[in-house]
Write a protein that binds this DNA or RNA. Structure first.
Length: 556
RNA sequence: UGGGGUGUCGCCAAGCGGUAAGGCACAAGGUUUUGAUCCUUGCAUGCGCAGGUUCGAAUCCUGCCACCCCAGCCA
């Protein structure tokens, strides 16, 4: 992906200007701060490409910082998955940090706030606090505990830390302005009591700092220059700046917000993804139907294709609803030039070539790629009995249908022209076998006396391997389930996974799960990294080929 | 009805006072032993709406309208 192809965006422009102006000594330091409470998804990929990408472009660094301030929601298991996904996307962090690394410093700063009369221990209940906060249009009112003395606050806060109170009994708040138009400035809570074990700090703490307080200080301690986050934090920026200003931190990162990605036919909220996993509506966080990075990886997407997608969608502050077609275009682009071509039949019917000698096997030397000779050749088996796809045969059809029709001819890809003579059906009227004859003068050349318009793919019935082939459709039946009226459970597409029992050409028996193939005329496929084994092949369809025929058919 | 944002082609998105980039999608042709790829062409007298400033406005000003975010001891 050549750099000059990157479209500009407003954040890149800001950073470029800062660097040109010598701000922060011309350095760029960013951070990616996931909370370890779930897997990363394609929306995070956008943020990752931005934060890591900006540091990369301006020769800076990026910290991977786990935002682990809420132990009741988080789990160390997610940290490994997150690291794997970022590394897989191809980004390198300078260092891994945890917000919890700063717990002691954060605590000391809190005492400092208390000593300056800028923080106080409130002993209201959560309900009282909510009531006193006011509403969007009504100012809040001061807590009765707002004017406790510095000494009393310090004593209480130290007792909080010492574990002398139960959860919820007290809370530490910043003393800002209960009448502020921005609700986030109405004496925000910064420390709450939680008697729970933390996955990083164990039982060292029973008070935990909140996001608004933790994030800006963590950024400053790491020397972050540009703190990029999504638009939902925009209204928190005044608080971010207030805290760092009050603390007179020598480093004051610039927070810049951008809009999050909305992608068609999926959900992007961690809460919903977590539910889908926990309610077993999908097969884990890496289910190929999910928009998680792990899911896309398992489905067969390449890191490049995802980075290309993030480049194509851009970075702005406007709401966006990106079409799935845009993502699919990226993976087709990535695989078109690189994926070796092979043949596989998803829904087989048998072809018997009656005039082809019984027991004869011809090895056909075929190119692995139609344009790239460097990708070499392989041999495929041609035999008397073959499988073709059910879609590629009709007993009767109009002229537009270019495949095998009873009484008509079609080219077998890389092989001979065959003619369909007789259709054999089972008791339920399903086509089972088609008896054909072949023209032995048509290997590698066209018949001179007639035109054969169609080409279909096939595999040898004797040499092909049976394979389970998993086809994926969008997980949701509507464009944007997140904004739909109904409960999203109602909108789940029960046909999102279709399993086919098909056959793939012999050469695929040595495929590895890293390989990606184009099954000619079908789409791009790869081995399922979890469920496939050499004696029970399982393929995932990454994406279908662009299907002009389907459009023609639909119109008719 | 408080505060903060956003509105440029069906979708994404450049543009930042000099007369609407690009990608996706779509459409029409060409090449093709993948109805794929590739190639060519087309696709906003118009930039949420209405006024105004200017020789000139998507870009500046004014006023509307629509949509999004914020009232967790979540992040």
């Amino acid at each position: 992906m050549p750099e000059e192809n990157y479209p500009s965006n407003f954040i890149r422009n800001i950073i470029r200007q800062d660097v040109a102006d010598g701000k922060n000594a011309g350095q760029v330091v960013t951070r990616f701060p996931p909370e370890p409470n779930g897997f990363l998804h394609i929306g995070h990929a956008k943020a990752i490409c931005l934060s890591f990408g900006m540091a990369e472009e301006f020769a800076g660094n990026t910290y991977l910082r786990f935002d682990d301030t809420n132990p009741i929601k988080e789990d160390a298991e997610f940290m490994h998955a997150i690291q794997r996904d970022i590394a897989w996307l191809g980004f390198e962090w300078l260092e891994i940090r945890h917000a919890s690394d700063y717990f002691e410093q954060l605590y000391q700063f809190a005492e400092q706030f208390i000593e300056q009369g800028k923080a106080y221990v409130d002993s209201c209940s959560a309900d009282e606090m909510r009531t006193n906060r006011g509403t969007l249009t009504k100012p809040g009112i001061d807590s009765p505990y707002r004017n406790r003395s510095v000494d009393e606050n310090l004593t209480l806060f130290r007792q909080m830390r010492a574990g002398e109170f139960a959860d919820g009994e007290h809370i530490l708040r910043l003393k800002i302005d209960m009448a502020a138009a921005n609700i986030n400035m109405r004496d925000p809570a910064i420390y709450r009591i939680r008697h729970v074990t933390h996955h990083q700090t164990g039982d060292a703490w029973c008070i935990y700092p909140l996001y608004d307080y933790t994030h800006c200080i963590s950024d400053a301690l790491e020397g972050i220059t540009h703190s990029l986050c999504d638009l939902s934090f925009e209204a928190h920026r005044p608080l971010y700046d207030w805290i760092l200003d009050e603390l007179k931190m020598s480093c004051h990162p610039q927070q810049i917000e951008f809009s999050r990605l909305n992608l068609q036919f999926t959900v992007m909220s961690k809460r919903k993804l977590k539910q889908l996993v926990e309610e077993n509506l999908v097969d884990g966080w890496d289910d190929p139907r999910l928009p998680t990075i792990a899911g896309l990886r398992r489905k067969g997407y390449t890191p490049d294709s995802i980075r290309d997608f993030c480049r194509r969608i851009g970075v702005t502050k406007s709401d966006n609803n990106v079409e799935l077609a845009s993502l699919e275009s990226c993976i087709r682009d990535a695989l078109g030039d690189t994926a070796p071509r092979v043949m596989g039949v998803l829904d087989p019917i048998k072809i018997i070539i009656d005039n082809y000698p019984q027991g004869q096997v011809e090895m056909l030397d075929v190119a692995n790629h139609p344009k790239n000779e460097a990708m070499g050749k392989r041999a495929i088996h041609f035999t008397r009995e073959l499988y073709i796809d059910r879609e590629d045969f009709r007993e009767s059809a109009n002229r537009k249908y270019k495949r095998l029709v009873a009484g008509g001819e079609v080219r077998l890809r890389y092989g001979y022209v065959i003619r369909a003579n007789e259709v054999i059906k089972d008791a339920d009227d399903n086509i089972v076998t088609v008896h054909c004859t072949y023209d032995d003068a048509t290997l590698g050349k066209n018949p001179v006396d007639r035109k054969v318009k169609g080409v279909i793919h096939w595999v040898s019935a004797d040499y092909a391997h049976a394979a389970e082939i998993r086809l994926y459709q969008p997980l949701f039946k509507v464009d944007f389930p997140d904004t739909a009226e109904e409960d999203y459970h109602e909108l789940i597409n029960s046909d999102a996974l279709t399993i086919k029992q098909g056959f793939v050409e012999h050469s695929l028996s040595t495929a590895s799960s890293e390989d990606r193939f184009q099954f000619e005329r079908e789409g791009y496929f790869c081995l399922d990294s979890k469920d496939s084994s050499p004696d029970a092949l399982v393929f995932n369809r990454i994406v279908g080929l662009r299907d002009t025929w389907a459009k023609i058919e639909k119109k008719a």
